[in-house]
């Protein structure tokens, strides 16, 4: 993966330089009640890279994302973010799970955006964004609020700071959720089907924010069915099938010349309409 491939995928994009590997995943396995959902997944994501993770529902792509963010503990394998082993302490080749508060600290490096937004309904928009910077990072209240306002402007919601989540449309809620994740200044943003719960007319406003974010050099892993986003912003498209990554290509290659049978089937279903 290099700047050239990203450049050819979208002609109008300026050349993008990918940095050092920031997420390194090796042979990750995960089962739920005896059902193996991830069957040995390895993946390296580099600084500023935008990776789209596609696949049918049940293929394990959301689980992979949740494992990266430590929302689900993994059964075996390793996940490193910025060189740091996630979720475990390693000593003399033996590893033990990290206690909750240290996992929480690791998770601050990653921003997560959920399919159902998961905004905190009892807090106003600005409190949703600042609660963790103030209470967890111990930032000064006024500083955190000023940054939150800047983030709200960035996601196009400057006038909504005192609204409660219930008063916002789905698209607006998801943009607040993106601002909330960004407020922790994460190294990587993870998106778990961010537009799947949205009405069609609201999808674009969320994707616009995401494309904008990718242009500013944010490293992103995006689980999505929005192939338009993959074309516009992805450096790489990965296809997951039954718990393994079966295809890895630039968007250009993925859509025009898929290598695996699974990718061809997937594309035929996605592009039928």
């Amino acid at each position: 993966m290099n700047a050239d491939t990203a450049d050819t995928s979208v002609a109008s994009e300026p050349a993008k330089t990918l940095g050092e590997p920031i997420i390194v995943i090796e042979d990750v396995r995960k089962s739920f009640a005896g059902l193996e959902v991830l069957k040995g997944v390895s993946l390296t994501v580099r600084q500023s890279e935008v990776v789209v993770l596609a696949g049918r529902s049940g293929s394990g792509k959301s689980t992979l994302l949740r494992c990266i963010d430590q929302l689900e503990p993994i059964d075996s394998g390793t996940i490193r973010v910025g060189g740091e082993l996630m979720g475990f302490r390693e000593k003399d080749g033996k590893r033990t799970p990290l206690p909750d508060h240290l996992v929480a600290r690791q998770m601050r490096q990653l921003g997560m955006v959920f399919q159902n937004f998961n905004l905190f309904p009892h807090l106003t928009v600005i409190d949703n964004i600042t609660v963790s910077p103030i209470k967890v990072l111990k930032r000064k209240r006024e500083e955190a609020r000023a940054e939150a306002r800047a983030l709200l402007a960035r996601v196009g919601l400057p006038e909504k700071e005192n609204a409660y989540p219930r008063q916002l449309s789905g698209g607006q809620q998801q943009r607040v959720a993106i601002a909330r994740a960004l407020a922790m200044k994460p190294k990587v943003m993870l998106f778990d089907e961010p537009t799947s719960a949205l009405d069609p007319e609201m999808i674009a406003e969320v994707l616009d924010v995401m494309v904008d974010l990718s242009r500013q050099g944010m490293t992103m892993i995006v689980v999505t069915h929005e192939m338009g986003f993959a074309r516009a912003a992805a450096d790489r498209v990965l296809l997951m099938h039954e718990g393994v990554l079966v295809e890895e290509a630039t968007p250009e290659e993925f859509f025009t010349n898929p290598q695996s049978a699974e990718a061809r089937v997937f594309l035929s279903k996605i592009l039928r309409h």
């Binding site: 905190f120 963790s132 407020a183 922790m184």
Partner: peptide, 24 residues
Amino acid sequence: GQNDAARAVGMSWRERMWLIILPQ
């Protein structure tokens, strides 16, 4: 999902409880 979201913004168990779960 509230617990997930609170973990995702780096809150420890105690912070999740006091700031997010118990108020709701």
